[in-house]
C-alpha cells in the first residue's frame, strides 16, 4: 500500500508539472482553443449549410470527439519529446520513479486536459447551434465510449511516445504522422464505407472508429451502450492489449536508448 501511495504521489508530480506548463503557456493554450473551436465550427457549418441537422450533428461529433482523442494522444505521445526539447530527459530518467508511474501521470493529465478542452469546445458549439437538443441524446453512451476510447488511445500514445526515444530527430515527426493517419482512417467526418477497401481494413484497427461510431449512435439515435456491443468489445480488447503493450514497448525502448546513448541527445 505504501508503495502504491508513493508511486501515486510521484505520478502527481507529472500532473502538477504539466499543469504548470499549461499555465505558463496560457497564451498558446488560448490560441489553440480558439483554433480548435474555429475548425470545429467551420466543419459543422457544412452541415448547417446543407440544412441537415443530422449531418450537422454528425460533423460536430466528429470535430469534438476527435479533438478529445487527439489531445489525449498528443499529450502522451509528447511525454518524451517535450523533455527532449527542454533537455530534462536525463534528469527525469535518473529519478527513482517507475516508468509506469511517469506514464500514469502523463495519461491522467492528458485525460483531464482533454476533457476541459473538449467541454469548452462543446459549449461554444451548443451555443452556436441552438437547434441541437441534448435532451434527446444518450449522453451516457457518449461518456462511456469516451472513457473506453481513452484507454485505447493511452496505449497507442505510449507506443508513439517511444518514437522520440528511438529516433532523436524524427521521432516527434513520426508521432504526428501516426495521428494524421488515425484521423484519415477513423471516419471522423465521413462513414468509413467511403474509404478505399485497404483503408477500411485499417479503420478497424483504429479505436477512434469505434469511439465515433458509438458516440454517434448514442447522440444521434439515443442508443444505449448495451445496444452497441459491436463497438464496445473491440475497444475493451484494444485497451486490454494496447496499454500493457505500450508499457512493454516503452521499457524496451528505454533499455535501447540507454544502451545506445540516445537519452543524452537534445531534440
Amino acid at each position: 500500500m505504501a508503495l502504491i501511495t508513493s508511486e501515486l504521489k510521484a505520478s502527481y508530480a507529472f500532473v502538477e508539472r504539466n499543469f504548470f506548463l499549461t499555465r505558463r503557456y496560457w497564451g498558446w493554450e488560448l490560441a489553440f482553443l480558439v483554433y480548435s473551436v474555429a475548425g470545429a465550427l467551420s466543419i459543422s457549418l457544412i452541415g448547417a449549410a446543407a440544412g441537415d441537422d443530422r449531418l450537422l450533428l454528425t460533423l460536430i461529433i466528429g470535430a469534438v470527439f476527435w479533438n478529445y482523442l487527439s489531445v489525449v494522444f498528443s499529450w502522451i505521445a509528447d511525454t518524451i519529446s517535450v523533455e527532449r526539447w527542454e533537455g530534462t530527459l536525463e534528469y527525469t530518467f535518473m529519478a527513482p520513479v517507475r516508468r509506469w508511474t511517469q506514464l500514469l501521470g502523463s495519461c491522467l493529465y492528458a485525460m483531464a486536459y482533454g476533457l476541459v478542452h473538449t467541454a469548452a469546445m462543446l459549449l461554444v458549439l451548443l451555443v452556436f447551434f441552438p437547434q441541437l437538443r441534448p435532451e434527446s441524446m444518450n449522453l451516457l453512451t457518449a461518456a462511456g465510449f469516451v472513457l473506453l476510447g481513452s484507454f485505447s488511445f493511452v496505449g497507442i500514445g505510449m507506443m508513439a511516445a517511444i518514437l522520440p526515444l528511438l529516433y532523436v530527430e524524427r521521432g516527434a515527426q513520426m508521432t504526428f504522422v501516426i495521428q494524421s493517419c488515425l484521423l484519415l482512417v477513423s471516419g471522423v467526418y465521413y462513414p468509413v464505407s467511403v474509404l478505399p477497401g485497404w483503408m477500411q481494413v485499417l479503420s478497424h484497427l483504429s479505436p477512434a472508429t469505434y469511439v465515433l461510431a458509438g458516440v454517434r449512435a448514442g447522440l444521434l439515435d439515443g442508443t444505449p451502450v448495451t445496444g452497441l456491443w459491436g463497438d464496445v468489445l473491440p475497444l475493451i480488447a484494444m485497451g486490454i492489449v494496447l496499454i500493457p503493450a505500450g508499457l512493454w514497448a516503452f521499457g524496451r525502448a528505454e533499455r535501447y536508448a540507454k544502451r545506445t546513448g540516445k537519452l543524452k541527445r537534445v531534440g
Partner: peptide
C-alpha cells in the same frame, strides 16, 4: 518542486 516530488 517537480524534482522534489519525483524523489518522494
Amino acid at each position: 518542486l517537480f524534482a522534489a516530488r519525483l524523489y518522494g
